[in-house]
């Protein structure tokens, strides 16, 4: 467990770096929030100064930073001026929307990519292999905002099977009582099939958009890892020993190919969570990406800082999970200290 603890402690300087960097980044944004939020035409220079004071921006930068870090240590991410809510409340409100989208997209991508990659690796040079290669290259070539718009055009405008690409739920459906914030789960918990279907329908296009993008690196890595693993000595030994092909592929080859795949999974997932902004824009998805963008443009410092910190924390957490998964798949890495 010692190693795990040290690994956890190693995260602290990274997060501290993120805190400093975001603070600096917000302060060098051009534009003066005191001027921006003093929007009444009757306001004069004195009003702007008073507002600056109220926002705490009259303090020297180092004091602002000390105050910010102090609040942070108390678990206070500050207030959003635009929404009038504490940033933490806003993030908790919106994070499930982004997470639900990302997880569903991720699951879709994994469900397609891994079998595809394995199939391609089993028959290199076959039709499946070429297909895999094409998908892998074409998939990352599709900008998510173009894929999203194309899907909207095809399935909403032309075929009319998809719902209006606006938000997580038909705006006039009743949202289920909030338990987790994940609409699919909350709808199931409330035994409300209608809402579940509505939420799932809204989710399909944006999730597919993201999945197409995420599929490529996963399929490519699965294929490569499987080829390497199938060519290794122990597989050859196993074959020579007359083990069943199925057993060899699933038990030996795939298990050994898992390590690089897990690493890629982690990278892809955290990348998706951060790159949500574009998909959220296209589908009017009320997630944290669009929240951060609005705050950035609206000179609302606290939400930008809170968002960056939250994302960095998630990124670090995912890396940690990947490491743990790694050591389960391969005990030799010894994260749990029984090497």
């Amino acid at each position: 467990m010692n190693v795990l603890l040290r690994r956890l402690l190693g995260v602290v300087p990274t997060l501290a770096g993120v805190v400093v960097a975001t603070f600096v980044l917000t302060r060098i944004l051009p534009g003066d929030p005191a001027v921006f939020f003093t929007s009444s035409p009757s306001a004069d220079a004195a009003t702007i100064e008073a507002v600056r004071q109220k926002l705490g921006l009259d303090q020297p930068l180092w004091r602002q930073f000390v105050i910010y870090v102090g609040a942070l240590l108390r678990g206070d991410l500050g207030q959003s001026i635009t929404t009038g809510q504490p940033v933490l409340t806003d993030l908790l409100q919106r994070l499930p929307a982004s997470a639900e989208l990302t997880i569903v997209a991720f699951a879709l991508a994994v469900a397609v990519a891994i079998p595809l990659g394995v199939a391609a690796a089993l028959r290199p040079g076959s039709l499946v292999d070429h297909l895999c290669r094409l998908i892998a290259t074409a998939g990352v070539s599709l900008p998510t905002f173009v894929t999203g718009l194309l899907l909207i055009y095809l399935f909403y405008y032309l075929a009319g099977v998809a719902p209006e690409p606006m938000g997580r739920l038909d705006p006039f459906a009743t949202a289920p009582p909030r338990l987790t914030g994940f609409l699919l789960i909350d709808a199931l918990a409330a035994r409300n099939g209608e809402v579940f279907v509505s939420a799932a329908r809204q989710l399909i296009l944006p999730a597919a958009t993201m999945a197409i993008f995420a599929l490529a690196p996963l399929a490519r890595m699965t294929r490569a890892a499987m080829i390497a693993s199938l060519g290794s000595d122990f597989v050859r030994t196993a074959r020579a020993n007359g083990l069943k092909w199925r057993t060899i592929v699933v038990t030996y080859a795939l298990r050994n190919a898992l390590l690089p795949i897990i690493t890629t999974l982690g990278m892809v997932f955290s990348y998706m969570l951060g790159a949500n902004v574009l998909v959220e824009r296209v589908f009017a998805w009320p997630g944290i990406g669009s929240y951060a963008l609005d705050a950035l443009i609206g000179l609302d410092y606290a939400p930008v800082q809170g968002f960056m910190l939250a994302m960095a924390a998630i990124f670090v957490a995912i890396n940690l999970i990947v490491d743990i998964a790694y050591s389960i798949a391969d005990p030799r890495t010894g994260l749990f200290g029984h090497a």
Partner: peptide, 11 residues
């Protein structure tokens, strides 16, 4: 220009 920037530049 984003709103905040333009406001400041006008100021």
């Amino acid at each position: 220009a984003p709103a905040g920037q333009l406001g400041t530049m006008l100021q």
